[in-house]
């Protein structure tokens, strides 16, 4: 019954996350927008799990574990870059440019 509305809300939240990644220059805020996208996908997994069986909920469990690992490593990278460049603005972070 809630499948259609849930997929619609999930679509809106995912698009807001994409727009946020394109809109912001602060690396930490971009990172938070990625978390928002992960959560939008989790919502559609849960909505479909209600119809197709509990395996979808297990996938959400794994997504959460991966998101936790990603947040720890990503924030450590941001910390290391800040120590090196004194900024988290992605305009000034071009270490990989030749």
């Amino acid at each position: 019954m809630l499948l259609g509305p849930s997929l619609a809300v999930s679509a809106i939240l995912f698009s807001l996350g994409v727009a946020g990644v394109l809109l912001r220059r602060n690396a930490i805020v971009i990172f938070m927008c990625v978390e928002l996208m992960l959560n939008a996908v989790n919502l559609s997994f849960i909505a479909l799990a209600q119809q197709l069986g509990p395996q979808g909920q297990v996938i959400v469990f794994f997504v959460m574990a991966v998101a936790a690992a990603e947040a720890a490593v990503g924030l450590a990278i941001i910390l290391a870059i800040y120590r090196h460049k004194q900024t988290v603005d992605i305009q000034n972070i071009n270490l990989l440019r030749g």
């Binding site: 997929l7 619609a8 999930s10 809106i12 995912f14 698009s15 994409v18 394109l22």
Partner: peptide, 15 residues
Amino acid sequence: AAALGLLLAAELWAV
């Protein structure tokens, strides 16, 4: 950002 976000939302809205 707004254009790409709206485009993606429209695509996802269709499904």
